[in-house]
Simulated scan of single mutants.
Amino acid sequence: MIIGLLSDAHGNLEAFEKARRVLDDFGAAEVYFLGDAVGYLPGADVATLIVDLGLPSVLGNHEAMLLDPACGRSDRDPVYRLAETAAAMPARVRRALQGWPDRRDLRRGCGRVVLVHGSPAERVWGYVYPDTDLTGFAGDPSLDGAFVFMGNTHRPFVKTVGATTFVNVGSCGLPRDVGHLGACCLLDDQTGEVRIIRFDIRAETAAALERCGPVHARVLESLGRREKGVIGELV
């Protein structure tokens, strides 16, 4: 069976919906969300859709800050727009977010599958980049032989260290490597094959920005990035 994984939609409903269509096209029978439905683009639409769809999810740092502003950087709310998002969020959706765990563990034919937002050590707040040294995580006996899926950095990669495969699934709504290419991930839960899929979200992001209204300049800068090289398969 093919499992689809998404992360870091950050209020970009239109890009999130395109990511779901991409996963459908590749035959994903289950979809998991790795956190940060909210933040940067104001509004609760993505979080509401995830809850209504019943997608199994893990808690992201932006959900954590929305639920408890004291735990994060409330001084950065002009960038994050979480207060505005919280005010627009239905109570039932907020209650659902409060129930999102910080880690999910699955057992599949390919072995153990671990889902977190940040890192195995800091499940909500950790940052794991393509150049992060993964040997410390690989030395954790609880991760030996596992497939570990993460988000948070908005930068996808797939790396195997020892018997453990580490995957950052990237961002479906606010990429930070090539700003117009959303990312999603596929796992064949029998063979262990992992694929990063990239897809153009320019039209979707333009529609999201028109719907949301003005956003912080940092968001626009991220969407305009054009780093050399694209990690993943372009569709």
Score class of each variant (00 low, 15 high):
V178I: 14
K159L: 13
H180D: 13
F166I: 08
G179Y: 01
C172N: 14
C185T: 11
L187H: 07
T153N: 02
C185I: 08
D188T: 03
R155A: 14
A208V: 06
R198I: 08
E204T: 08
I201C: 04
E193Q: 14
L209I: 09
G162L: 11
H154W: 04
Q190E: 15
D188A: 03
L187M: 10
F199L: 07
G192M: 06
F166A: 06
V169R: 00
Q190V: 15
R198Y: 08
F166Y: 10
D189W: 05
R198A: 05
I201H: 00
L174R: 12
M150S: 08
T205Q: 03
Q190M: 11
N168A: 05
A203S: 15
A207V: 09
I196W: 02
A183T: 14
V158D: 05
V161S: 06
I196K: 01
V158P: 03
G162W: 10
D188V: 03
D177K: 11
D188Y: 01
A203Y: 09
G162Q: 12
I197A: 10
G192I: 05
G162N: 12
T165H: 10
F166K: 04
V161W: 04
T164F: 00
L181N: 01
R195F: 06
M150Y: 09
R195V: 10
A183F: 04
F157N: 01
A207Y: 09
D188P: 02
C185P: 06
C172V: 15
R202Y: 07
F166W: 08
E204Y: 06
T205N: 05
E204W: 05
E193R: 14
M150C: 12
P175D: 03
I196G: 00
G179W: 01
V167C: 06
K159Y: 07
G162H: 10
K159H: 15
R202G: 09
L174Q: 15
I197M: 15
C185N: 07
H154N: 13
V167P: 00
Q190L: 14
G182N: 03
A206H: 09
E193N: 10
A163G: 12
C184M: 13
P156G: 03
V169K: 00
G151W: 05
D189S: 14
L209Q: 08
V161P: 05
R155Y: 06
L186S: 03
N168Y: 02
G173W: 00
L186Q: 01
G162T: 11
V194M: 04
D200C: 10
G173T: 04
R176F: 07
